[in-house]
Amino acid sequence: MNKKINQSIAFWIFRLLGLLVVGLLFWILGFIIYNGISVINWEFLTTAPSDGMTSGGIFPAIVGTCCLMAGSVVVAFPIGVMSAIYTNEYAGNGKIVKFIRIMTNNLSGIPSIIFGLFGMTLFVNSMGWGDSIIAGSFTLGLLVLPLVIRTTEEALKAIPDSFRTGSYALGATKLQTIRRVILPMAFPNILTGLILAVGRVSGETAPILFTAAAYFLPKLPSSIFDQVMALPYHLYVISTSGTDLEATRPMAYGTALVLIAIVLLVNLLASTLRRYFVKKVKTN
């Protein structure tokens, strides 16, 4: 009997813990949504900050973050996909592949602030790009590269070998097989990974502190060599270093909500895509 009581106590504790974590999530999300929703309106999303960040909107920061998201995709997507194709389709299962996998893993473990330092020395100073969209995009692109590689690899692995052998049997070369058979089939999953990577980019602050982000810019960027405002950095500065923190609070709530909305959207998009893909494979 004792055993049973122990078991039910333990299981109730676990259920409570599960509930606690979910509660935590809803607390954080709810807090920001509750406080931020009243700030969000058309004007907030489409005008620049004014009166020392206490009024106006966050339009330049949204544009800046979009630029950085697009830029980092341009950097990470081709390299990441090609790298995954190499390890999965070409390299076999030797020592080199193991080494590359370990290195990719290690790269994903490096803290984002280190990427910031690295981006600052290489792209900002050595390349002479200065604080700019392009320097920030490269830094962020390298940051999410391991994520793109890993998800692409998984997408490629999920394709049964029969498709490859079938293609070869029809006389296609390896490159043709990859281009015509494997990539189109893996594409939705690759896209999912890419979307997740973009979501990560949208929230990263430390890497762009010294490579791209500006405290305040009244103008929108006109070239990739311009500095930009960015949402996460904007949230950081207006919540920690303003002359009138109380007055900038609503702006901060609004910015946090926009950031959260991007994350929610990205997750939703990714899971919808995944589900769609699973269905498609089943019907095939």
Partner: peptide, 24 residues
């Protein structure tokens, strides 16, 4: 139901956590 929620927790940007921590 829970797995995606926990994934979501991982997706929230660190600066938002910082903001939440600062205010709450």
């Amino acid at each position: 139901l829970l797995k995606p929620l926990i994934e979501l927790l991982a997706g929230i940007p660190s600066v938002v956590y910082g903001f939440f921590g600062l205010i709450v």
